[in-house]
């Protein structure tokens, strides 16, 4: 043990970890993500057929999916979907909803201000910060590249 350097031990320990089931994970992410997106498409079609315009349909679909994600989180179901689906459950907007509602529920015990409100964004916060920042950068680049055209 003493003649093993830290680096040698870390490489040795790495080999002792069971390998993740990559193929199964990817397949489940594809299926779960696909199912969520298909549900989104059905909602979209239904809203279109109800006579809403493109902008209202886009907003309405997001609102309904966020609601479903929040409801399933509250019912204690979304964490199970996330366990099976991985990124397939985390990337769609329902996963974003889960990332905000789950810490809000968890920290209810510390009160509405320091618990729910301040802990609500502990997971989704970084996504918002870098998501919004990168959209601003892309927007500026777009403006510069297309200026005068």
């Amino acid at each position: 043990m003493e003649n093993m350097t830290n680096k040698e031990y870390q490489q040795y320990a790495e080999k002792k970890i069971p390998k993740p089931t990559y193929f199964k994970n990817m397949l489940m992410a594809f299926l779960v993500g696909g199912i969520i997106c298909t549900i989104g498409q059905l909602i979209r079609n239904w809203l279109f057929n109800s006579g809403l315009d493109e902008k209202a349909v886009a907003g309405g679909t997001s609102i309904i999916l966020v609601f479903i994600g929040a409801l399933l989180t509250g019912l204690g179901v979304y964490d199970k979907i996330g366990k099976i689906g991985g990124a397939g459950a985390a990337i769609p907007i329902t996963g974003f909803s889960n990332a905000i509602v789950s810490p809000a529920m968890e920290h209810r015990t510390e009160g509405l201000i320091f618990g729910v409100a301040s802990k609500m964004f502990i997971i989704a916060g970084p996504v918002l910060v870098y998501g919004v920042s990168s959209s601003v950068i892309v927007g500026i680049l777009y403006l510069l590249l297309t200026k005068g055209r």
């Binding site: 069971p18 979304y78 964490d79 979907i81 996330g82």
Partner: peptide
């Protein structure tokens, strides 16, 4: 770690 209801996957280790 994470809130209980957050949908994450745990490593095998």
């Amino acid at each position: 770690r994470f809130p209980l209801e957050y949908g994450s996957q745990r490593n095998f280790s």
